[in-house]
Write a protein that binds this DNA or RNA. Structure first.
Lengths: 199, 199
DNA sequence: GCGGAACTGGGTCAGTCGTCCCAGTTCGCG
DNA sequence: CGCGAACTGGGACGACTGACCCAGTTCCGC
């Protein structure tokens, strides 16, 4: 077999684990399923990772990085009005979920698991803290860009945004009703925009 | 040991399973853990239930019954204004979550699991449909009681309410920030009340 | 009080899990 | 070229899982 470095092997295992998690869920994310997906032997897993839990921690931590959410900033930049920006950001987020529902569901499962596992509980709360930070940054960016201001602390509004996206995701995952989800996204956008006022 | 009917045994096992689910999570909800909690033998389990999955289905179905959510109607009845009613309903819901966080988390885990399991997927979507129905009924009840009307279909607003409560729950479960959750509940109430207008 | 049905406990089975060990192979460096 | 470190594959271990079987015990209706 190909002889590759530990670092590279960790990356391959990590990517394989994410694929399995999205496709089959957390309960199917066994070390054997991961190495099968990565086409490695079981021993290679424990050569690269001390334990399964360490890999799980890596996945949670990668979400904290939040490259994905940062992508939404691009959407904001293209909009002509703040109203359009918020609406398009939420619509884009919904598209993201619909494009890869398993991934989003896997992240929920992972967060739930992390909250139950003392060793990972800290990571889960950091994950949400990061969500809130990203959302707050987007809101702040929006206000300065269009010379407007928010009538409540952006930290609080950021929580509202995250709650709305979570709720939107769970709702669509449960019944896959596209039309209803789009109407909900519109209502969510409106709920946020209510707090936008002239500078 | 006590000789009891199958029906009664199912109830005892059901209650024990719910306790284990709330305390230790879905991954710890093994048949052995359940019978230990119910102080029965393993054979009694399979005498009362054909399989573990059948019991899981029962639990999901019981959520669909939604006795708990119906309790919120009482809160609405006590309020003097619709604004107060919505605010108090959401605050009460938050209290409910805080009083038994494990239960709420267990329900999330169960829903996620149901969505991944073909045999249970239907139940999960029915569960959310039921949530939406209950929320819609509450909104309708509110409008008639105070002689007001909603500016959007209550079906759509119900979805917003469910999404907000889900988001509120996940947010608090992740960081257990009471103050932030209360501010979020207030924002959520405001988001809903925006759509209330004179008759 | 007796027969048959209802119910119970203990033991067992095959399968999966995370983890580990060890004999081998391959590589980079001197 | 050779040596030691890095890396690999296969196999194994003990623990746990859901499901099941069967020999007993207890209860109810007759």
């Amino acid at each position: 077999m190909a002889r590759i470095s530990v670092a590279q092997r960790r990356e391959l295992l990590f990517a394989a684990a994410v694929r399995v998690l999205a496709r089959d869920g957390l309960s199917a994310l066994s070390t054997r399923a991961i190495v099968a997906e990565a086409e490695m032997s079981l021993a290679s897993f424990h050569y690269a990772y001390a334990s399964r839990e360490e890999l799980l921690g890596d996945i949670v931590a990668s979400v904290v990085g939040g490259e994905r959410e940062a992508g939404l900033a691009g959407v904001l930049g293209e909009a002509a009005t703040p109203e359009e920006a918020v609406r398009r950001a939420l619509a884009t987020y919904l598209d993201l979920v619909r494009a890869d529902p398993g991934r989003e569901q896997g992240m929920f499962e992972l967060t739930q698991h992390a909250l139950r596992t003392p060793a990972l509980a800290r990571l889960a709360s950091e994950q949400y803290q990061r969500y809130h930070e990203v959302a707050a940054e987007l809101l702040d960016h929006l206000a300065t860009r269009f010379d407007r201001r928010w009538d409540s602390p952006t930290a609080d509004l950021a929580r509202l945004v995250v709650a709305l996206t979570d709720g939107l995701t769970l709702s669509w995952l449960a019944d896959r009703d596209d039309a209803a989800a789009e109407r909900l996204a519109a209502l969510a956008a409106e709920a946020v925009l209510t707090h936008l006022e002239e500078a």
